[in-house]
């Protein structure tokens, strides 16, 4: 085993890992390239066997990397002019190397820093970004994606919002009229849903108003609920005995009459 010094190593493979290399661990190098501890200015480096392949070494050192980190590593390697057996490399991370995948890697490393940070934080996968395959140019989406990450949505919420952004852009061509004034994530989602599902949204809004207008018996809670493709009124009542139950049922007849009167 050869020991060198950080100062003697190139940092060309610094891919901006999410977590710094643990201080207690030594830095590793390979053929004069620093593989870990990129934030270190000095200290020793254990130089790994130069005959070993980087595509084998790397997953051993970093068994879990996010898609974004892998994309940044891919760019570093390309810049360094190293030739890696990429299918083998990405297979180790459970990913399939293909033309589409390469295009995705090249695209995501050019995303604005705040978006990249969110992608790393939320550990976005290839599938999470699949909506973008339908876009030749990601640029029109970026300002809205940047705005979205300022609201710190969860991965699931964010991925769904990105998909709606892509779809709305493809349908309407401009997101500004929809998203320019939103000030929080739930408003953003609400606006996008109303545009993406106009018929359903109008129906839901109508039902939400209706549920408030109906003459529900006192002590009975009713609300409009949507569960995927099904929507309806959820009614909650609390009774202690048969007379109370009877009273509530009688009270519900007024609701039925009102619904009939409205032809519903």
């Amino acid at each position: 085993m050869k020991i060198t010094h950080v100062a003697q190593c190139s940092k060309v493979l610094d891919f901006g890992p999410r977590t710094p290399w643990p201080e207690r661990l030594p830095a590793f190098g390979w053929r004069g390239l620093l593989l870990t501890g990129f934030d270190r200015e000095n200290g020793h480096v254990i130089e790994l066997d130069s005959e070993e392949l980087l595509e084998k070494i790397w997953p051993d050192i970093y068994p879990k990397l996010s898609l974004m980190e892998l994309a940044r590593f891919y760019r570093c390697v390309e810049k360094a002019g190293l030739a890696l057996e990429w299918p083998t490399f990405f297979f180790a991370y459970g990913m399939r190397f293909s033309d589409d995948f390469t295009a995705l890697l090249q695209r995501i490393v050019t995303l604005p820093a705040d978006v990249q940070r969110w992608c790393v934080q939320k550990d976005l996968s290839v599938r999470d970004l699949a909506a973008f395959k339908a876009l030749a140019d990601w640029a029109p989406i970026l300002p809205w994606w940047q705005k979205m990450v300022t609201f710190e949505p969860s991965r699931t919420e964010g991925v769904r919002a990105i998909e709606w952004m892509v779809e709305l852009f493809l349908m309407k061509g401009d997101l500004a009229p929809i998203l320019a004034d939103v000030t929080n994530f739930s408003e953003m989602v609400k606006q996008m849903r109303a545009q993406r599902f106009p018929v359903m949204d109008a129906k839901d809004q109508l039902a939400e108003r209706l549920v408030k207008e109906l003459p529900w018996p006192k002590k009975l809670e009713a609300r409009y609920v949507r569960n995927g493709d099904k929507a309806g009124f959820e009614v909650k009542l609390f009774v202690r005995n048969t007379p109370e139950l009877q009273k509530q049922i009688e009270g519900l007849q007024a609701v039925e009459s009102e619904l009939e009167r409205r032809g519903l």
Binding site: A134, V166, E167, L170, M171, R196, F197, P198, M200
Partner: peptide
Amino acid sequence: HLMRERFGLSSMVTSAEVVSS
């Protein structure tokens, strides 16, 4: 995703208001 990529969003199907059942 494949549908969107292959047929865009001007299709009656890809732009449909469908939700999880």
